[in-house]
């Protein structure tokens, strides 16, 4: 089991998340297990659905993560309100991404609230991070 964890951390790092972010995702995974008995690991496909689907956001208007980030994670996006350029989310295109837990938790909280008008669950956060890592 220990070997598996190390392997998991190693392979995730190769894919673009830093060790501390991988550690954070392991914590999310533990919480997800307690919140959802049938939880069997994070899933990029579920993450993609979270990322690309449209919801009534904080402002009461239709909103999606792609409204600002676009549907191609390797492209830069634009803040839909201010027009400010947002660097690509994909760690492959932007090595700064998913390197700091402080940054990751800050933006997950803000952006879930802006798009879903609520915070994300541990499973949702892990799914969307997994989607970002793999794209």
């Amino acid at each position: 089991m220990k070997y598996l964890t190390i392997l998991l951390i190693g392979s995730m790092s190769l894919m673009g998340a830093s060790t501390e972010v991988v550690q954070y995702m392991n914590e999310l995974s533990s919480v997800a297990k307690t919140e959802n008995k049938s939880f069997a690991g994070f899933d990029a496909a579920r993450g993609k659905e979270i990322f690309t689907s449209t919801h009534t956001g904080k402002q009461g208007k239709p909103m999606s993560c792609t409204s600002c980030h676009t549907s191609n994670l390797s492209n830069s996006g634009k803040n839909s309100l201010t027009g400010k350029v947002i660097e690509p989310l994909s760690p492959k295109a932007n090595p700064q991404r998913l390197t700091s837990v402080k940054e990751v938790t800050k933006w997950l909280k803000r952006n879930f609230v802006d798009v879903y008008a609520r915070e994300g669950t541990a499973q949702e956060k892990g799914d969307v991070l997994t989607y970002i890592i793999k794209n």
């Binding site: 904080k58 402002q59 309100l81 402080k102 800050k106 909280k109 803000r110 952006n111 609230v113 802006d114």
Partner: peptide, 11 residues
């Protein structure tokens, strides 16, 4: 938490 309609909170 409601900064011109968006969540701009930080630690």
């Amino acid at each position: 938490d409601n900064h011109f309609g968006t969540d701009a909170t930080m630690d």
